[in-house]
Amino acid sequence: MVIDAALNFADAHGLAKLTVRALADDLGVGAMSLYHHVPNKDALLDALVDAVHEEMLLPSVEGD
C-alpha cells in the first residue's frame, strides 16, 4: 500500500517532490509511521524501482 501510494504521488507530483514527509501528508498519517515500512527515502526509491520493474513486460526468450 505504501509503495502504491508513493507511485501515485510520484505520478501526480513528480519524483523530485517525493519525500517520506510529503508521502505521509498525502496519506494523512505522521511521517514517523512510514518509517515502519521504509527506513529512509533511499529505501523508498529502491522499492519504487522494484515495483516499476515488476510491472514491465519483458520479451519472451522463446521463439524467433
Rank of each mutant, 00 (worst) to 15 (best):
D4W: 00
A6F: 03
A6E: 07
A6R: 03
L7N: 11
N8R: 15
A10D: 00
D11H: 04
D11M: 08
A12Q: 13
H13E: 08
H13R: 09
G14Y: 01
L15V: 07
L15R: 14
L15Y: 06
L15F: 09
A16F: 07
K17V: 11
K17G: 03
K17H: 09
V20S: 04
R21G: 00
R21W: 06
L23Q: 04
A24H: 12
D25Q: 11
D26L: 05
G28S: 10
A31C: 09
S33M: 09
S33F: 03
S33W: 00
L34W: 01
L34K: 01
L34M: 01
H36W: 06
H37K: 08
P39F: 04
N40L: 12
K41T: 09
K41L: 13
K41G: 00
D42W: 10
D42P: 02
D42V: 08
L44M: 15
L44P: 07
L44N: 10
L45P: 00
L45V: 05
L45W: 06
L45Q: 06
D46A: 15
D46S: 15
A47E: 08
A47T: 06
L48M: 13
L48E: 03
V49S: 11
V49I: 11
A51K: 06
V52S: 09
H53M: 10
H53A: 15
E55K: 13
E55F: 00
M56D: 07
